[in-house]
Amino acid sequence: MSTNNAYYVPHKATWPVVGTAGLVIMLAGFANHLNGSPMGSAWMILGLVVFIIMLTGWFTLQAGESESGMYNTQVGISYRMGMMWFIFSEIMFFGVFFGTLWYTRNLSVPWLGGEGIGQATKELLWPSFDAVWPTNGPANVGGEFEPMGAWGLPFLNTLILLTSGVTCTWAHHGLLAKKRDQLIKGLVATVALGFLFVACQAYEYHEAYSEMGLTLGSGIYGSTFFMLTGFHGFHVCVGAIILSVVLFRSWRGHFKPENHFAFEAAAWYWHFVDVVWLGLFVFVYLM
């Protein structure tokens, strides 16, 4: 915490335009790739590289400024608000896919099976369709598949993520109590558990594609399953990378008990990812 009582207003910022350029090159490249252009993926990778350079540069700048005491309490509040509202936007993003799952399971699939307003649909279009979840639709899109059970790997993954939430909090207590050893150990455990989760998830996907016939193309069940777990897995990756950076900074001796916004933000993000997983475990795997 700085003794400085001034709100820090930076005067020039070059990273934002670099990041924007990286992102737009990446997306335009991806779009070209989807349209079958051979150079698309190269542009996509170039854009990604620029974007990663931007992230590295920008966060290095911010970490340096923070450590040199340029941010007072009020600046810290702005950052915390920014992170909180960013997580809120993420909640809304996941809400779309949870909502989609709810809508298809409770409304549109039963309608296809002839319930309520779907009577004519069933009789005229797919009279033989039996609307039972999990389904790949009346046209059996993607062929036969086996749905993903809850009590094998997914349950293990639940335990892994919950444990990582505990180790993250344990590390935070270490930071607050100035127990550097506890901070580092806790973060190492959290990051390791995070990547272990991702590895398990990758193995689960491999099983689904190679053994169970369950793919992104397996009708609405496959679509919702992979979209929800896939976006969540991506967020776990991002969270684990953020925590790795926080670990690196802790190892370098950054953060003080009264000033460690980056740690807090990473921890909030991690708990958010954790809670989303609990939702997935209940609504995607269990129910």
Binding site: A139, G222, S223, T224
Partner: peptide, 10 residues
């Protein structure tokens, strides 16, 4: 995916 395709249950 079949989010908006009734044939796949969407």
């Amino acid at each position: 995916t079949s989010f908006f395709d009734a044939a796949g249950g969407g």
